[in-house]
Design a protein around this nucleic acid. Structure first.
Length: 456
RNA sequence: GCGUCGGUGCCCGAGUGGACUAAGGGAGUGGCCUGCAAAGCCAUGAUUCACGGGUUCAAAUCCCGUCCGGCGCUCCA
């Protein structure tokens, strides 16, 4: 049975979906005001991995991830760059989609935009007002009253009192609020900002309300999994819970949070100058290398991104691809019966809080077994290993085939000439041609099943 | 400051009371295979899991303390 760590319950729990065989997931998407960086990619990866595994496990998954296209950062950036909020958001949403496609993140089934949900958000706020869970402050907006939510703080394991003590540690508290923990549902308009009409005056939605409106609209009042980056647990997700439950909705049954990403021992941040956009990284690194590196780290562990770590993952990917090339050269049946024991170990690893490092270990064990089987001429065992590796790699979103590459006619000619030279035992000529191929970025491998090549 | 998660070999990184004689990957070294390579296979590496105490028949795994690091501590930023 699939089980995973539920942030709110603070333990690994067995997962039973609300509807048998179906999983509904909502994952907080990007605020589109800048290029996505590798940290964004890690969170996207984490939930892509979970989604793919649940699908491989036989669940039908409905995956919703939003685009926040109105927000303070967007307003500020638009003002800085002399463009409109809409233009800015549209442009960066496109960049986000392009880069996530490039990284191999499957697109969501639904990708709602905050600006398309303002009406639902206003209805929602009205509902909270009616229930006494929200109040308006003239000229400022509408606030959620944390006093209406007794469990406020449970998502991060703190009591409301503890949170009150800590309030203002980093940020000044607005003295007009009834409780320092109260937060904005609707922000009154300021000059020059995008504005929507509301019963409480012109303004724009607060940060958290959009996710509640969109998630419950697309997935129902109660759904299975709500996910996001670790840094969103508080206040964002806590406030979503407060709003949703304040309105009497069941909301998310489970919460999953993915850990952050470090660069050379420090957190990735612009202020530290170690900020890498996903685009820049993928320019110099195969997307599958990055995916493999992320799979080698448990999703709840802070991950190290360094040149050494990337080089290590690149080596590991080469190993998988070499095995695949070899299996293809040997014409192994890719649909042969699978290794049931290995599949069982893989499933056990993944069922235990998505243990991708242990699951990958099963895959690498199979690769070693398959290579050894081919060495000893045991085709049956090699086929079992190959077929199983293919299937498990798919569950993890790993592609085993070499990246697309076209041989030019000159290279094809050289390969043919080298074959002839070797046939004639003219090894001096064969080696000369091999050097020339190497200079052209082609590495040759002579196998019992013929010569295969790869891009260096 | 408060909360929370973590500190494992040269590097990345699993493992959270007994099969750990610490998974897996990368790098290194030796051997086999190969015309030579490449790929592959085999062998090899932490007497030890930040440090100091403690609990236990048994701890990397539990408890206490210290040091170091990540993340969070409303709207704004």
């Amino acid at each position: 049975m699939v089980s995973f760590y539920d942030t709110r319950l603070r333990e690994i729990v067995p997962f039973v979906p609300l509807v048998d065989g179906r999983v509904s997931m909502y994952v907080c998407g990007p605020t589109v005001y800048d290029d996505p960086h590798v940290g964004h990619a890690r969170t996207a990866f984490t939930f892509d991995m979970i989604r793919r595994y649940l699908q491989w496990r036989g669940f039908e998954v409905v995956f919703v991830s939003n685009i926040t296209d109105i927000d303070d950062k967007i307003i500020a950036r638009a003002a800085e760059t002399g463009t409109t909020e809409t233009e800015l958001a549209t442009r960066y949403e496109q960049v986000y989609t392009e880069q996530m496609d490039r990284f191999g993140i499957a697109r969501p089934d639904h990708q709602p935009h905050a600006t398309a949900y303002v009406e639902q958000m206003l209805d929602f706020i009205g509902n909270l007002m009616d229930r006494g869970a929200a109040y308006a402050i003239e000229g400022k907006g509408v606030y959620f009253s944390v006093a209406a939510h007794s469990r406020y703080g449970d998502l991060i394991g703190r009591t409301t009192e503890e949170l009150r003590e800590g309030a203002g540690a980093r940020v000044e508290v607005d003295v007009d609020k009834i409780d320092p923990l109260d937060f904005a549902l609707w922000k009154a308009a300021k000059p020059g900002e995008p504005v929507w009409d509301s019963p409480w005056g012109p303004g724009r939605p607060g940060w958290h309300i959009e996710c509640v409106a969109m998630a419950t609209d697309l997935l129902g009042e109660t759904f299975d999994i709500h996910g996001g980056g670790d840094d969103l647990a508080f206040p964002h997700h806590q406030n979503e819970v407060a709003e949703a439950e304040g309105a009497g909705l069941g909301f998310a049954r489970h919460w999953i949070h993915g850990a952050m990403l470090n660069v050379n021992g420090e957190k990735m941040a612009k202020s530290l100058g170690n900020f890498t956009t996903l685009s820049d990284l993928l320019d110099i690194c195969d997307p599958q290398v990055l995916r493999l590196l992320m799979l080698q780290t448990h999703y709840r562990t802070v991950m190290e991104l360094s040149d050494d770590a990337l080089a290590g993952a690149a080596g590991a990917l080469d190993r998988l691809r070499s095995w695949n090339r070899r299996a293809q050269a040997a014409r192994l049946n890719p649909s042969a019966a699978r290794d049931r024991d290995a599949v069982a170990r893989f499933t056990a690893a993944m069922d235990d809080d998505f243990g991708t490092p242990a699951a990958l270990a099963v895959v690498f064990d199979l690769v070693r077994e398959g290579n050894a089987a081919l060495d000893s001429g045991d085709t049956t065992r090699a086929e079992t290993a190959h077929s199983t590796v293919r299937n498990l790699a798919r569950a993890l979103g790993l592609l085993l085939r070499d990246s697309a590459f076209h041989l030019d006619t000159k290279v094809e000619l050289l390969l043919a000439e080298r074959d002839e030279a070797r046939e004639a035992k003219d090894f001096a000529a064969a080696d000369r041609i091999r050097d020339e191929l190497a200079a052209r970025g082609i590495t040759v491998e002579d196998t019992p099943d013929g010569t295969i090549w790869r891009k260096t």
